[in-house]
């Protein structure tokens, strides 16, 4: 499968990454090489094979629905780029 520039720009948008114009074709080449590697999978017959999502086929354990952690907001916000009165600040979203 050949990845073209349009696909790259679409994926970059989905991945929230900026791809500079001069880098688009480099990404396209790299991704084409990776997809060629991956493409080999299509030769394998996987009819009626159950996919594995947990290697031990374990089920997700649920904890009891009660508060166990203490409030660490101040510690977590101490490392944030910009906070005010307990809120994370970002550029204005709604005019």
């Amino acid at each position: 499968m050949k990845i073209d520039n349009e696909v790259i720009l679409n994926i970059a948008e989905l991945a929230q990454l900026e791809v500079k114009d001069e880098m688009i074709s480099q990404y396209a080449d790299k991704m084409t090489a990776m997809l060629n590697l991956i493409e080999e999978m299509q030769s394998v017959n996987t009819d009626n094979i159950e996919p594995v999502s947990n290697p031990l086929d374990a089920v997700q354990t649920m904890r009891e629905d009660k508060v166990t952690e203490k409030d660490l907001r101040d510690e977590y916000q101490a490392i944030a780029p910009e906070v005010d009165s307990g809120l994370y600040l970002v550029p204005r979203v709604v005019e």
Partner: peptide, 28 residues
């Protein structure tokens, strides 16, 4: 690059052909 490949593999229309297929191979 890896984020881009992963995003592609999970994107609409490709999930079954890539991610699900890979998980089936994982079973084998």
């Amino acid at each position: 690059s890896r984020i881009m490949v992963g995003t592609f593999a999970l994107s609409a229309g490709y999930y079954d052909a890539y991610y699900r297929k890979a998980q089936q191979i994982r079973r084998l």
